[in-house]
Amino acid sequence: MQPLMTVFLILITVGAYVLSRYLYFRYNNPLVNVVLLSTSFIIAVLLLCKIPYEAYAPVQALASFLLGPATVALAVPLYRNRHLLKQYWAAIFIGVGIGTIVSMVTVLLITQAGGLPREVILSIIPKSSTIPFAVEVARIAGGDPALAAAFVVATGTFGSIMGLTLLTWFKMKNPVARGLAMGTVSHGQGVAMAFMEGEQQGSMAGVAMGMAGVFTSVLAPILIALLVK
């Protein structure tokens, strides 16, 4: 019974993605977001069919495993657009570095001004890096790794929904800049949305995601030591 259930849930997951992707290109609305729609659809199916989350665990494990090959596959479009790295390497390095610092400092000051507990502040600082980076940074700094992971997911979801729209509102049309912004702030989900807009945007978002993770790992402990009492 379990193998049949797993196959059923895999089909539901793939179907949710295909449907959400179709609706995204059909209506071109930021609220018609692939991640948000597909996740909502899967949750709805689990609730309506009264399927426990434990039954979905094998599908989640499979998806997590496929993240590795998917990340490695980012090298293919990046190789095709390597001329952009040669042309904009200084702007990429400086832009991602400043973006990472501004992201961490801004959220740190806002959470301190709001009087949030120290553990929450330390957990939210690395929110714009991917989960492996954020969890380790939060653990070293004294935050809650599970809370850090939740903030990462929330940040990526919001960024994937509103990121490209906000960039358009601010008249940012350069594909390199759009990709770097999405990858720096919204990590993996931002990369996915950037690829849906174009290969150059997606390639640059992938570069920014990796660099932002490294910058966060190096700079977050320094910022925490300087700004968190």
Rank of each mutant, 00 (worst) to 15 (best):
K86R: 09
K86D: 02
K86F: 00
Q87Y: 04
Q87C: 00
Y88T: 02
Y88W: 12
W89I: 08
A91L: 12
I92N: 02
I92K: 02
F93W: 09
F93L: 15
F93I: 13
I94G: 06
I94T: 14
G95I: 09
V96K: 01
V96D: 01
V96H: 01
V96C: 03
V96M: 02
G97E: 07
G97A: 07
I98Y: 03
I98V: 15
G99A: 04
I101D: 01
I101P: 01
I101C: 01
I101N: 00
V102A: 14
S103W: 00
S103V: 00
S103Y: 01
M104A: 04
M104P: 02
V105L: 14
V105R: 02
V105G: 07
V107Y: 08
V107G: 05
V107A: 07
L108T: 15
L109I: 09
L109Q: 12
T111A: 15
Q112I: 13
Q112K: 13
Q112G: 05
Q112C: 05
A113H: 06
G114D: 12
G115E: 11
L116K: 02
L116V: 06
L116D: 05
L116E: 10
P117T: 09
P117C: 08
P117L: 07
R118W: 04
R118T: 14
R118H: 13
E119I: 15
I121Q: 14
I121G: 03
L122K: 08
L122D: 06
L122S: 07
L122M: 08
L122V: 07
L122H: 08
S123I: 06
S123C: 07
S123H: 07
I124T: 05
I125K: 03
I125N: 00
P126M: 06
P126Y: 03
S128T: 12
S128I: 01
S128K: 02
S128G: 03
S128E: 03
S129R: 01
T130I: 07
I131G: 00
I131R: 00
P132I: 07
A134W: 02
A134C: 03
A134E: 04
A134S: 13
V135T: 10
V135Y: 05
V135K: 04
V135E: 09
E136H: 00
V137K: 04
V137T: 09
V137L: 03
A138F: 10
A138S: 15
A138G: 07
R139Q: 13
R139T: 14
R139D: 14
R139C: 00
I140M: 13
A141V: 06
A141E: 15
G142K: 10
G142P: 12
G142D: 12
G143P: 08
D144M: 15
P145A: 09
A146C: 03
A146M: 09
A146K: 05
L147S: 12
A148V: 10
A148L: 11
A149Q: 11
A150I: 14
A150R: 08
F151T: 02
F151M: 06
V152L: 14
V152K: 12
V153D: 13
V153G: 11
A154E: 04
T155M: 13
T155C: 14
T155E: 11
T155F: 09
G156Q: 11
G156R: 11
G156M: 10
G156A: 10
G159Y: 06
G159A: 06
G159I: 05
G159F: 06
S160C: 13
S160K: 09
S160G: 15
I161S: 09
I161A: 10
M162Y: 11
M162R: 00
G163P: 12
T165D: 12
T165W: 15
